[in-house]
Design a protein around this nucleic acid. Structure first.
Length: 878
DNA sequence: CGATCCCGCCACATT
DNA sequence: AATGTGGCGGGATCG
């Protein structure tokens, strides 16, 4: 706890280790705090410890990393930080007079300082995220407990969760083995698969709106399934470790719960799970009987788990605003895609798709299908296996409502479906708030899975931006008249809806670029061509005029497609966040960290980061978002249709509205989220880049250029209204609000070889068009496309600047300027590296080291890992 | 006052 | 029986 403050002055103050004494001291015994450090004592502690000694250990062990973590934490919990950090006084004083300061500190040992989340960070700080395979780090619970100054009990809480994700494994009594995150993606993948089996339908289904329903149903289902399967699934991983024997133990609910909790995120379209839903789902007991107390207890546990997951950077706390109100929830910010996935976008053929036009979106449909299948499979599976054999808790235990029959399961599912249907119908009736989109009629049987998707989309948005809302009218218009059709898609109009990817940016500060790459084209077509024509992405942002009211609009209707986009986006974000530690993570807090800041002048460097972009908000005042549209908005629809075909082949420039294609399956739009740096604080960017490596592969030839639709909005503006960007379907929109603000801009990204580093240059076609062409292959680019129209607004509001951003990459960049005078800080997050693993890695480790290195204060980070190691090693000896 | 969640009792598992 | 684990929920804090 101390650490916080001390991080800077590490060496100093002795006190804190022990919470206990804190309590004692609080009064005013300032000066001498240090003296008897009571507490630790409890533990058998051999070591010599003097208060100081402990401190030293702590400091040494944690310092570098700790800071990072702390920062992260800060992100998560701004308040805390502020407070602590505030204490500058303390620092100063410390210099002078420690005791005094300490006192103050002591006075409020604040509960937070002892929080599990913080503790977990400390814990994690002690071990490298990616330990060398060679080194096997063993963790002694007692040791850690004493070092961290907490009771062992608390360590169990942490370790149990970590174990559920396989970051550690139990080797022996009191001994755990640290694995780090090497296998995290694999684990998550497994959990995701398992989760789909168990919760997929539900989550998908109801996710947002129907949460209520979900709860009810969810519970049942889960139970059923979970029994038989959970164990196995969960356990699967365990075997590897010695601990297998451990299985017999009572059920380790915390571990299982943790896994289930993670599964919910992985299965969730929105990647947001509210606590209450999770609790309900996780309560295996009798569905109906959800006692209040039990529920409460479950929630408590979830908080424990959530704290750990938060410390791991896998989730973050958010609030979901629903019809009913605002509820606490957590959003998954970890990796979303897993390499190994069986389902590859490309492979899968739409053919079998049960869902007709519904989803053009690349992955979404796919997933759905998969889910169904599994589901089915699953059901049978259950039936086949009676799981009673496995052990359950002792009979004596109070609760053991477990055994369910598969039959029941089926029936439940049916019920569920029915209920859902009802729900939907109801909703439909009251489209008012809830469902902007018409819900699909759900066929009783099978479809649960399918239908859900569309809905899912919304929620996502909501979550983030409660504040934003589109007026209905607007939304409908703007978005798409057709939108509603989405549901209909099945019926008749398939395509449109789905295609559209909309992005809503909830948070005021976010900036998103959405775009899909045309991968398909790329792949098939020559890279070059692809490049060129490939992409223009259109992005639209519709900004409702101030007049617009904020409403539920957040739900912008978005066809399923959007959903897809979103997901990826989420992923990306996550990834990046990881990479870029702090800043990314917490958008809210702009970090002014030096890191990002790129000065205007910095050529290459800046390039590396997105800094290349400079955004100046020219017109901050102009809240309206400026959007650029790609040249052919109109076509988009048609194209969409075509897109259905999915033939990407044609690179034809004109047509290739990428966006649509994007929507298709192949590519997932990637988003890059750029954190606002100091200057940028006001903005956040999301870029959608191609996630798929596949896409990248295309690029491989050289520079693939991607066009991404982007929207730049001043945060302020956003705050006031919601933005929606539908890359795909811009055209329709264009008419809408038209002139006022939305402009669609197409962005092109060129990436060199791998997307990873490339400096992205964003060219607004319109603006810049002409210029950039450094990239050879690229030249073809259509970007030049005259097509762009900038809305007047844009034009005005933003000055497009072309830069050659010659970034190191040598790609040209275009910058948009928004009025922001100040240096635009950019937070460039580098584009995320193509590889999955990269996600996890620290920024330093990211694939494109080069790029990274520079800017950020990364050094810190980069160094940190190294340092960390060193330190640890040094420490360990002790 | 509701949301969080620390604390540590105590049951159960393992040694 | 001793000790390791970890469920659990009272009640303190936080917001």
């Amino acid at each position: 706890e101390n650490i916080f403050d001390r991080s800077r002055m590490a060496p100093k103050t002795p006190i804190k280790n022990e919470p206990v004494d804190l309590s004692k001291q609080k009064g005013c015994t300032p000066e001498r705090n240090p003296i008897t450090p009571v507490k630790l004592v409890d533990r058998p502690q051999p070591d010599p410890w003097t208060p100081t000694a402990n401190l030293k250990m702590l400091v040494s062990a944690a310092s570098p990393d700790m800071r990072d973590r702390e920062k992260k934490k800060e992100l998560f919990r701004p308040i805390e930080n502020s407070e602590q950090s505030d204490t500058p006084d303390s620092l100063q004083y410390d210099m002078v007079d420690d005791s005094t300061v300490d006192e103050f500190e002591k006075q409020r040992p604040s509960r937070k300082q002892k929080s599990l989340g913080l503790l977990c960070q400390k814990f994690l700080a002690r071990y490298p995220s990616y330990p060398l395979s060679t080194e096997k780090t063993t963790i002694s619970l007692d040791e850690v407990a004493s070092i961290l100054g907490v009771e062992r009990r608390r360590i169990y809480d942490i370790v149990n969760v970590l174990e559920s994700l396989h970051l550690v494994s139990r080797v022996a009594k009191n001994q755990y083995c640290w694995h780090g995150r090497h296998n995290l993606s694999q684990t998550l993948k497994t959990l995701q698969e398992a989760g789909e089996l168990q919760y997929g339908e539900l989550m998908t289904f109801f996710q947002h709106k129907e949460q209520d329903l979900e709860y009810r149903f969810g519970e049942r289902k889960k139970e059923t399934i979970s029994d038989s399967q959970d164990r196995p699934l969960l356990d699967f991983s365990e075997p590897d470790c010695t601990s297998a024997s451990a299985n017999s133990r009572k059920d380790k609910s915390l571990r299982i719960m943790s896994q289930k909790f993670v599964m919910l995120f992985l299965v969730s379209k929105t990647k947001i799970v509210t606590l209450d839903i999770a609790a309900k789902i996780l309560i295996e007991e009798t569905q109906d009987t959800v006692d209040h107390s039990k529920f409460k207890t479950k929630v408590r546990r979830l908080y424990d788990i959530a704290n750990v997951l938060t410390s791991l950077g896998l989730i973050k706390k958010v609030h979901v605003t629903e019809e009913r109100g605002r509820k606490p929830a957590f959003k998954w910010i970890g990796p979303v895609e897993f390499p190994g996935k069986t389902d590859e976008p490309r492979g899968h053929s739409p053919t079998s798709d049960p869902l007709p036009g519904t989803q053009r979106g690349a992955s979404a449909p796919y997933q759905i299908c998969a889910r169904k299948q599994r589901f089915t499979r699953h059901a049978s599976f259950n039936g086949a296996q009676p799981c009673e054999g496995t052990r359950r808790k002792v009979s004596s235990e109070p609760n053991s409502p477990r055994q369910e029959r598969q039959d029941e399961y089926c029936s439940k599912m049916i019920n569920l479906a029915a209920v859902c249907r009802q729900k939907i119908e109801e909703d439909t009736r009251n489209p008012s708030i809830t469902s902007p989109l018409p819900l699909l009629p759900v066929p009783g049987d099978s479809d649960f899975c399918v239908n859900p998707l569309p809905q899912a989309v919304f929620p996502v948005v909501q979550a983030d931006m409660p504040s934003l809302s589109l007026p209905n009218g607007i939304s409908s218009q703007a978005l798409h008249p057709s939108t509603p059709a989405a549901s209909k898609t099945e019926n008749g109009k398939p395509t449109l809806l789905p295609n559209q990817p909309f992005l809503c940016f909830p948070s005021s500060s976010l900036f998103m670029f959405c775009g899909g790459l045309q991968e398909s084209n790329l792949r098939e077509t020559l890279p070059t061509t692809g490049d060129l024509g490939s992409r223009r992405a259109e992005a639209q942002a519709a900004v409702p005029p101030a007049a617009c009211q904020k409403r539920s609009s957040h739900k912008c209707e978005s066809p399923s497609a959007p959903v897809n986009d979103e997901e990826p986006a989420a992923k990306k974000q996550t990834v990046e966040q990881r990479d870029v530690p702090f800043s990314l993570v917490v958008p809210k807090k702009p970090f002014e960290s030096p890191t990002t800041e790129s000065t205007p002048g910095s050529g290459c460097t800046s390039a590396e980061h997105l800094e290349a972009f400079h955004l100046d908000l020219t017109s901050p005042a102009a809240p309206e978002a400026a959007v650029k549209e790609s040249p052919k908005p109109l076509d988009s629809q048609e194209q969409k249709k075509q897109s259905q075909n999915k033939d990407p082949d044609e690179p034809s420039p004109g047509k290739e509205h990428i966006s649509k294609e994007n929507a298709h399956q192949p590519f997932l739009p990637q988003y890059l989220y750029v954190q606002p740096t100091a200057g940028l604080s006001s903005f956040n960017f999301l870029f959608s880049a191609n996630p798929a490596p596949g896409a990248i592969s295309l690029a491989a030839s050289q520079l693939p250029s991607l066009s991404v639709p982007c929207v730049v909005v001043p945060s302020a503006a956003l705050a006031s209204f919601p933005l929606v960007c539908s890359p795909a379907i811009t055209s329709p929109l264009s008419p809408v609000p038209d002139g006022s603000f939305s402009a669609a801009a197409s962005m092109n990204f060129s990436m060199s070889g791998l997307a990873s580093t490339m400096p992205v240059f964003i060219g607004t076609t319109a603006v810049v068009t002409p210029k950039v062409s450094p990239a050879p292959s690229v030249d073809a680019q259509q970007p030049a496309h005259p097509a762009l129209h900038l809305s007047p607004m844009l034009a005005r509001s933003c000055g497009a600047v072309k830069l050659d951003s010659p970034v190191c990459m040598g790609h040209p960049m275009t910058l948009l300027k928004l009025q922001q005078p100040s240096s635009a800080p950019l937070t460039p997050k580098s584009i995320r590296p193509a590889r999955h693993e990269a996600f996890f890695k620290t920024p330093g480790s990211l694939g494109d080291p080069v790029a990274w290195k520079k800017n950020e204060g990364n050094q810190t980070r980069n160094a940190s890992s190294v340092q960390r190691r060193l330190e640890i090693s040094s420490t360990s000896p002790d």
